[in-house]
Amino acid sequence: MKAKFAAFVIMLIFWVILSGMFDAFHLTLGVISCLLVAHFSGKMLFEGLRVEVRARQILGMLAYGPWLLWEIVLSSLQVTYIVLHPQMLDKMDPQLIRFKTKLKSTFARVTFSQSITLTPGTITVSVHDDEMTVYALTRSAADSLPGEMEKRIARALEPEQT
């Protein structure tokens, strides 16, 4: 019940931002459609978790965001260096690496794989349970995994230390 209500509130906020109309007709339409969607698929957003835990994860996400943004700037500058280098093939040494992640929850794993894709020199190929396959552009990028990012995500997103 609580999950459905939280989903309803989130969707209503999204509706108001998107429509920008505040007369009775549009607000009524919004409330009706949000109620319907929340009734049928509200559990999807908070699947298997209590609302408080998910709220804490979202707050942790906000704290994690700026650091990720800075990493993306660094990674783009690195790609810039490689792309504009005249003999760029010398600078590259692509390889596939596999490693096991310590993160438990699905949400944290998804965030981790998205972050790997956005940070210097690495993209995620696949995630099976706790085994991740990563394609790295250079040797040093491959060596830097999992490293600091996993710790930061664990601090921000893992529900409880198990």
Partner: peptide, 22 residues
């Protein structure tokens, strides 16, 4: 930079680096 990378890089996977990040 992303577009130049898309043209210059040697294989599909490294092209994704340029496309995804830049």
């Amino acid at each position: 930079i992303g577009t130049i990378g898309l043209l210059r890089l040697p294989d599909f996977y490294s092209r994704l680096h340029a496309a995804g990040k830049c």
